[in-house]
Computed example of a mutant assay.
Amino acid sequence: MTPPLITVLNGPNLNMLGTREPEKYGHATLDDVEALCAETAEGLGLAIDFRQTNGEGELVTWVQECRGRSAGIIINPAGYTTTSIALLDALLAVGLPVIEVHITNIHRREEFRHHSFVSKAATGVIAGLGVQGYALALQAMAGLVDPIDPDDEE
């Protein structure tokens, strides 16, 4: 039996993690985040598809591709959090559990970052806990889907 697939999507500028404003986002790179997600998912009996794009249309397409393919979506929409109705509509259309992740606490930042369109589609939101928020999102997602027990010998 194959483990449930969780798609982990990352929006614009997250490819710059580790070098972009490390005082806000830390020193972990996107490769580090992917490794954290892979390790966490394996321990939870989940599989992941980890992606990043700077393009809104590509992100929307990836969300749409999740329908019938993924058990859930973890998304850090980054700059599209506050701007993308198209992303909101796609997340609502796929009918999957969605967990929104932000490395920083968007509510302690500039006023324009306080509103998230994506939150309207999210089952839950994790913000301000650094890249560890991705691992926490996977733990939460395991409670929303039916993971394979990695200790099961069948």
Rank of each mutant, 00 (worst) to 15 (best):
P4I: 13
P4H: 08
L5T: 13
L5M: 11
L5V: 13
I6H: 04
I6S: 07
L9W: 04
N10A: 06
G11R: 05
P12H: 00
L14Q: 06
N15P: 05
L17Y: 05
L17V: 01
T19Q: 10
E21T: 14
P22I: 08
P22L: 01
K24V: 15
H27F: 02
D32L: 04
L36Y: 01
A41D: 09
E42L: 08
G43E: 09
G45K: 04
A47T: 08
D49E: 12
R51C: 04
G55H: 14
G55T: 01
G55P: 00
W62Y: 04
V63W: 00
E65T: 00
E65H: 04
R69Y: 11
S70E: 06
S70P: 02
I74R: 01
I74V: 15
I74S: 11
A78C: 04
G79D: 07
D89G: 01
L91A: 07
L91G: 06
L92P: 00
G95E: 08
I99T: 12
E100D: 14
V101T: 07
I103E: 13
T104M: 06
N105I: 04
R108M: 09
E110F: 10
E111K: 15
E111L: 10
S116K: 11
S119Y: 04
S119H: 08
T123Q: 10
G124H: 09
G128N: 08
G130N: 12
G130W: 13
V131K: 12
L136G: 15
A137N: 11
A137T: 03
Q139M: 10
Q139C: 03
Q139A: 05
M141H: 05
M141E: 10
V145L: 09
D146I: 13
P147W: 15
D149C: 08
D149H: 02
D151H: 12
D152P: 00
E153G: 00
